[in-house]
């Protein structure tokens, strides 16, 4: 009897410790971004956008069908962001890479390669919604604080040191987010797509086609940089529960014409 009792005690200790550290994680991954106000982030975003084209090889695409399509797609998504404190600025730049990334203060950069690869506007909407997730969850500023430190960021905001801003831009273009952040952005995107009457499955179809094209995801692409369980991300998008009365509203865009304009 005592042996069984001891075994049960050991099992209870094991299960108890496991449960404790599962529900109360040791690694406090809480956001650091609360230390930077939205206004400060927006100011940083402005400084970065002022220097973005001179610090990178990107050229903005403006005034053509693709630019207009990005505006139409992002307007639909923005309309559903009732509580957002950010003033979004979504721009299209010339670059063949299939990519999009987020800069501070609600600035999102979509590369023309992404639009060219997308089979329909819904796929582009899915990627932009994902980037909006990074903005709303404040992942960008969080990453900058971790990489550069809060003091450097404040000095940039107050002083606008051009070299530092260049460093920030390079970091923002080349670095990815961690798995948890990518998963949060995915969750945000799926909900936003649903609210915007865009099928959340668009995220899965985009992932799948990209997976097919490269065998594995392009490591340079921000949304896949940390390749967080790509199959589970596809699965999550496919299994996302939609209400029975959910109906999609297609974007009124001639997608072939949009691609031709690039």
């Amino acid at each position: 009897m005592k042996t069984i009792r001891d075994a049960l005690i050991l099992l209870a200790i094991f299960a108890g410790i496991w449960a404790l550290f599962t529900w109360v994680p040791l690694f406090d991954d809480d956001s650091l971004s609360v230390e930077v106000s939205i206004e400060q982030e927006e100011k940083l975003g402005e400084l970065i956008m002022d220097n973005f084209y001179s610090s990178s090889s990107y050229q903005r695409i403006k005034g053509n069908a693709a630019d207009s399509a990005i505006r139409i797609i992002s307007t639909r998504l923005k309309e559903q962001l009732d509580l957002s404190e950010f003033d979004y600025n979504i721009i299209l730049v010339k670059d063949e890479t299939i990519n999009a990334f987020t800069l501070p203060g609600g600035n999102i950069v979509v590369l023309s390669g992404l639009v060219d690869f997308a089979e329909n506007p819904e796929e582009v909407a899915a990627v932009i919604a994902h980037e909006m997730g990074h903005v709303e969850k404040r992942h960008v500023i969080d990453r900058l604080i971790k990489e550069f430190g809060i003091a450097i960021l404040f000095s940039v905001v107050s002083g606008g040191d051009a070299i530092l801003i260049q460093d920030l831009i390079q970091s923002l273009i080349s670095q990815g987010f961690n798995r948890k952040q990518e998963a949060e952005a995915d969750d945000f995107a799926l909900q936003l797509l649903e609210k915007s009457s865009v099928s959340p499955r668009a995220l899965a179809t985009f992932f799948r086609r990209l997976n097919k094209k490269y065998g594995t995801f392009d490591d340079k692409m921000e949304i896949f940089l940390s390749h967080p369980a790509k199959n589970s991300r596809i699965k999550k998008s496919l299994q996302y529960e939609l209400p029975e009365d959910f109906q999609t509203i297609e974007f009124d865009l001639d997608w072939d014409r949009v691609k031709e304009s690039l």
């Binding site: 410790i17 496991w18 404790l20 550290f21 529900w23 040791l26 390749h227 369980a229």
Partner: peptide
């Protein structure tokens, strides 16, 4: 094989280290 590091994993890791 493309699984995620969840809190269950981290909890188990800490438990194993303690054990």
């Amino acid at each position: 094989y493309d699984y995620e590091y969840g809190n269950t994993y981290w909890g188990y890791l800490v438990t194993v280290i303690l054990a």
